[in-house]
């Protein structure tokens, strides 16, 4: 089943869903936004941090490079929107948020398989974690 999902996810067309704060929204194309799309191979030193939005592609859910890239962008002072796009499972949503991702773009098929209730529930797990506690306690 997961393999089927992967196929479905990698086939992202204009028909996709944005997950923002645990809610589903239609993916709108805002041409006024100055965006950049990167994948797991991106080198942080070569990324233009003046973009309004940086989209990080998650090719496979087991490939966790996007999490470190998002965090590195934030550590390098990037203040724009970070969108994770592609193969991100609902269980990974809280991890992405904690790494500095603002929103997730998933395919319709994916959104049907993992409905919004699951994303909203997952979001509650973004708080109250070991790392925050270590750093803030």
């Amino acid at each position: 089943m997961l393999h089927k999902q992967q196929k479905a996810f990698s086939n992202i067309t204009a028909k996709s869903t944005i997950v923002r704060n645990g809610f589903f929204e239609k993916a709108e194309i805002d041409s006024s936004k100055n965006t950049l799309e990167i994948d797991g191979n991106a080198k942080i030193s070569q990324i233009d941090l003046s973009k309004d939005m940086i989209i990080i592609k998650f090719e496979k859910f087991a490939d966790g490079r996007g999490f470190s890239l998002a965090k590195l962008l934030r550590q390098n002072g990037y203040k724009g929107i970070i969108r994770a796009k592609g193969n991100l499972l609902v269980d990974q949503y809280p991890l992405a948020i904690r790494c500095g991702v603002d929103e997730v773009e998933i395919s319709f098929a994916h959104a049907q398989h993992q409905p919004k209730e699951q994303w909203r529930e997952a979001l509650t797990r973004a708080n109250n974690n070991y790392l925050d506690r270590l750093m803030l306690a």
Binding site: F61, A62, D63, G64, F67, S68, K71, Q92, P94, L95, A96, R98, C99, N129, Y130, L131, R133, L134
Partner: peptide, 16 residues
């Protein structure tokens, strides 16, 4: 123990 707390549920490193 410090490393246990640090690494448990670390958001970047669950999919190494």
């Amino acid at each position: 123990e410090l490393l246990r707390q640090y690494s448990t549920d670390h958001p970047q490193f669950q999919f190494l």
